[in-house]
Design a protein around this nucleic acid. Structure first.
Lengths: 203, 203
DNA sequence: CCAAGAACTAGAACCAGTTACAGTTCTGCG
DNA sequence: CGCAGAACTGTAACTGGTTCTAGTTCTTGG
């Protein structure tokens, strides 16, 4: 176990001791606190280590790098989000509207914290293998979240295609928002527009 | 004119002397050469400067940073691509197929140079204002390229919505590809799938 | 032609991510 | 208990993007 990021890998299979899990949590919490105020650039590894009361080298044993740390934070966040969205059924008369409702709800938390969102989304666009694993987690969570909006009898192959396409639009719109290409309103509108384009024909 | 990137801004309105335009070209060419072999990390500003026979400080007068340099390279590249795609009408019986044909053609060049594509796409996900301007250029070019696939009498509002949605899917699929989330084949398939989802209803 | 000022150059300096290392503490097992 | 090995700590070094500076060269209005 000498590879960087190895501990984080172990975290996926609950192989950590209590104190290790606590360290990991403190690191993620510290990163999110710093990102909350100053975004990506404000998350400095030395600061994270100090704030989490961890040695810098240890931080790198847990996460393969800054992007991995932030991506892990996003993965945690989205899983939390999934739990919260699941408790309330989506509003809306059509599948398209329900889907939009769900996606908007899932995105609301991000809208409230632009700096944090920008930081974690930016970290996601990176080819580090550990980051890709987090990206998969996020992607799977979004897949499950969207699945809740479809009626039981909806053709499952079509559903899968739609969900994947909307996942792309969601991600791209989010990137566009955090990088300032478009406002949050336009981003939401384009997501809704895409959902209607693909789903209104099934009403 | 003391701001970094000011010269690049001037380039947009052809305010450069011959030797300045040449410097800019050499810089972009050097960056592309380096990216071609080793991707994003291999593009080191000191190397670019040396290879382009420009002082490092001058490079920063032309481009606000590494990401801006690479984004400008992408913008040049896509405009070149647009010219090449425009000369030949799209193949395919339906609008969806023609659109897919066009998008695949536009993406083919990128498929051939994964390292370069990864580098420029990665540079695009960045909130530097100068980079955003390049992103707009790219986005507009993609918009025009896609427009060529629609028949004259297609409802223009719907067309706009579809093109925007497909632009998102295209970008996201590309990011997924360059970061290794999906293979190039899946990326192309998902783009085609989305095009059909939105367009087959209009046949 | 001749300043004055903008642009360019070479090189050092600065900063933050990352790595390396020597010493200390924890953990599990015989 | 006692030890071997892994994990952790603190700190220094390394790297590459970015900035700064002093000196030189181009450009241009008078």
């Amino acid at each position: 176990m000498a590879d960087p990021g190895a501990v984080e890998a172990a975290a996926r299979s609950d192989q950590l001791t209590k104190s290790q899990a606590a360290r990991r949590e403190r690191a993620i919490a510290a990163a999110m606190e710093l990102a909350l105020e100053g975004g990506y650039d404000a998350v400095q590894m030395r600061d994270v280590a100090q704030r989490a009361d961890i040695a810098l080298g240890t931080l790198y044993r847990y996460f393969s790098g800054k992007d991995h740390l932030l991506a892990a934070a996003l993965a945690d966040w989205v899983e939390e989000l999934e739990r919260r969205v699941a408790v309330r059924p989506p509003r809306g008369d059509t599948t398209a509207e329900q889907l939009v409702d769900i996606l908007r709800r899932a995105t609301r938390a991000m809208e409230k914290e632009p700096e944090l969102s920008g930081a974690v989304i930016r970290a996601l666009s990176c080819d580090d293998p550990q980051v890709i694993a987090c990206q998969q987690d996020v992607s799977n969570a979004m897949f499950r979240i969207q699945g809740q909006a479809f009626p039981e009898d909806f053709d499952s192959a079509t559903r899968e295609r739609i969900v994947r396409a909307l996942g792309h639009v969601w991600f791209s719109a989010l990137v566009g928002w955090v990088n300032g290409w478009v406002g949050i309103t336009e981003a939401g509108d384009e997501l809704a527009s895409a959902a209607h384009l693909m789903l209104d024909q099934y009403n």
